[in-house]
Design a protein around this nucleic acid. Structure first.
Length: 574
RNA sequence: CGGGGUGUAGCGCAGUCUGGUUAGCGCAUCGGUUUUGGGAACCGAGGGUCGGAGGUUCGAAUCCUCUCACCCCGACCA
């Protein structure tokens, strides 16, 4: 390809919406264009990277017995009603009607479609396992799209689904996909970490995310300084040591706290520490109100609550519900004196504590000297707080450290959540009807490509890992008015192509500096520089973008040199 | 959804408060001359429904009303 013919335009100034470096570079290098908020055109250069990543994924998945399919982007509502997600999936699901008035949505994910597809085909246990995947445009109507391809509304995703005869086999599939993901991200040359993750609205009870480490990442992960433990902050656990307080239990009393609602305000008013408070938060879990209690200085962790109750949906109760449950205005909820009998859940950190402060379920009143063991009986106890850095690792005696990451993939062990609701079953060895045990495996293609840029760039531009570079090398004739320079460049360009190197020739009649800058910006891993000066010595210069290293190479050894470097780089990346 | 902000040439911006000829600047584009190993210089040119609709006014990019789009922070969420 000649650079003059590539559909792209490099920019010095970027649209101000681009907030992180990888987004700015995608714009500056002429790789993407925005059509609407969170909706992008992929121009030829990035699309090549996207296709390369897709091929890496294909290879790794096919190697492990997966088969590629393609499902529709437009999905009818009836299967979503069957799975139950039509009603509780929020406005993120873009819905519309066809000319007949039937309901449809743009697929944000494909569990329903694949389950429907498989059940129409599945009869016997002998057919299983199946592991099917596709590359497809998903649409999620994100509240706030940002960072370019990182959090777009329309985005390319590889999604895969496994179907097995039982849990044990399904776990094998899960493990095999987990390993495939590690292989894929390694080949991309990324620094990443697999972490324990919450399952969110996809459901299921086991999940790992693959996080590319980056300052600009939207996710926070905690990982142990000593062992392999790592988890999304939402999911991270810590070692709880139960400590029975030996303070005398004092008499519980109601105190007047006019207008003081937030823990900090009440604490200041009563001259107590926030950590001596029971923070009581009312959630609606699958339609039923529940009171969750955590220490006053801690954050409630919704993901853990959802997981604990295996709930499909969870949300903060509105004011009306709170008044109905507590008989008081919002801000005075507590475990004692609730108007309605609801589930009350106590965080481990409050067990054994005495003489605490809580709301009195009476507007403008709190209780002091409330002690869980004496004054109320929780329905359940569990881990309901957000774990913080510096806390102890749940698996060893190390401490948890905090990192930011870009979530590029996630694997879920789904179990029979969908197969049961949608009757995706088969006859097992004993002639019994049995539900398929499923797993699902997502990998954000555009996001991974952008994460690669986020992790590999400098002030001049992108430093593509060889495996993802749009082109592997650029040939730069510096003086377009010198016949010899142009001839040699053409020859080397052709030799590189013949040697199997994906090369481009910068045939534009531009000054040297302009070409160098464009080459650095677009990020070709190898620059083959043909200039009149070095040509006189029978040499040309090869620059390695990643290291900035420049090497004079004899004319007839250029393609060997480039091929060797390419091979080394690909090997490192594997 | 709440708070804040922005829409003027492909991109980045000035002009708006205080209404007044042909609406400016930089980058990019086109032509010319000179240049030519790290984003060249000079001369010239093209390109605008000033986001849209309505209103006030002799006169609106500028004032008023409505509306749309986009961005940031938060809430929310695969």
């Amino acid at each position: 390809m000649k650079v003059s013919q590539i559909f792209f335009q490099t920019l010095k100034e970027v649209p101000k919406e681009a907030q992180i470096e990888s987004h700015r570079l995608l714009y500056r290098a002429g790789m993407i264009q925005k059509l609407a908020s969170g909706i992008y055109n992929y121009l030829p250069l990035v699309l090549r990277s996207v296709r390369k990543l897709e091929n890496i994924i294909r290879e790794e998945l096919n190697k492990r017995g997966c088969q590629e399919i393609l499902m529709p982007a437009v999905q009818p509502s009836d299967i979503w009603e069957e799975s139950g997600r039509w009603s509780y999936y929020g406005p993120e699901l873009l819905r519309f009607k066809d000319r007949k008035g039937s309901d449809f949505c743009l697929g944000p994910t494909h569990e329903e479609v694949i389950t429907d597809m498989v059940r129409k085909n599945l009869r016997s246990y002998k057919q299983l396992p199946y592991n099917l995947y596709q590359f497809q445009c998903k649409f999620r109507d994100e509240i706030r799209p940002r960072f370019g391809l990182m959090r777009a509304r329309e985005f390319i995703m590889k999604d895969g689904y496994s179907f097995d005869i039982n849990e044990e086999k399904a776990l094998d599939s899960y493990k095999s996909m987990y390993e495939a993901y590690i292989a894929i991200f390694k080949r991309c040359g990324l620094k990443f970490k697999p972490v324990d993750a919450a399952t969110g609205s996809i459901g299921g009870d086991k999940s790992h995310e693959f996080q590319v480490l980056a300052e600009s990442g939207e996710d926070v992960i905690l990982s142990c300084s000593k062992c392999e433990y790592a988890a999304n902050k939402e999911k991270a656990k810590t070692k709880i040591d139960f400590r029975q307080s030996d303070d005398e239990m004092e008499k519980m009393e109601e105190v007047h706290t006019p207008g003081k609602k937030a823990v900090e305000d009440v604490a200041e008013f009563l001259k107590k520490r926030p950590s001596d408070f029971i923070k009581s938060v009312i959630f609606v879990v699958d339609g039923k109100p529940a009171l969750i209690m955590v220490p006053g200085d801690r954050e409630v962790n919704e993901a853990k609550i959802q997981a604990f109750f295996k709930a499909d949906s969870i949300e903060l109760a509105d004011d009306a519900t709170i008044e109905e449950v507590t008989g008081a205005e919002t801000g005075f909820a507590g475990p004692v004196g609730l108007k309605k009998e609801i589930l009350i859940a106590l965080d481990h950190n409050l067990e054994g504590r005495r003489n605490l402060v809580s709301g009195a379920n009476k507007t403008d009143y709190h209780f002091i000297n409330i002690s869980p063991e004496r004054d109320f009986k929780p329905s359940v106890t569990g881990d309901f707080v957000v774990t913080r850095k510096g806390e102890r690792c749940p698996d060893c005696d190390g401490l948890l450290e905090e990192f930011r990451g870009i979530e590029v993939g996630q694997v879920f062990f789904l179990g029979t959540k969908y197969s049961e609701k949608m009757h995706c079953s088969f006859i097992d060895e004993n002639g019994q009807q049995s539900n398929a045990v499923m797993g699902c495996y997502g990998l954000g293609v555009g996001r991974t490509v952008q994460a690669a840029i986020e992790q590999n760039h400098d002030e001049y531009g992108i430093k593509w890992p060889m495996a993802l570079a749009p082109y592997e090398a650029i040939v730069l004739p510096l003086q377009m008015n010198k016949e010899e320079v142009v001839d040699v460049a053409e020859k080397i360009y052709k030799k590189l192509l013949n040697a199997g190197v994906e090369a481009v020739l910068d045939d534009r009649d531009e000054r040297a500096g302009f070409k160098f800058n464009d080459a650095d910006l677009v990020g070709y891993p190898v620059q083959v520089v043909i200039g009149a000066k070095s040509l006189e010595k029978g040499e040309i210069e090869v620059k390695i973008r990643k290291t900035g290293e420049k090497k004079a190479v004899p004319l007839n050894e250029v393609e060997d040199f480039v091929c060797r470097y390419k091979k080394e780089e690909m090997a490192i990346d594997h």
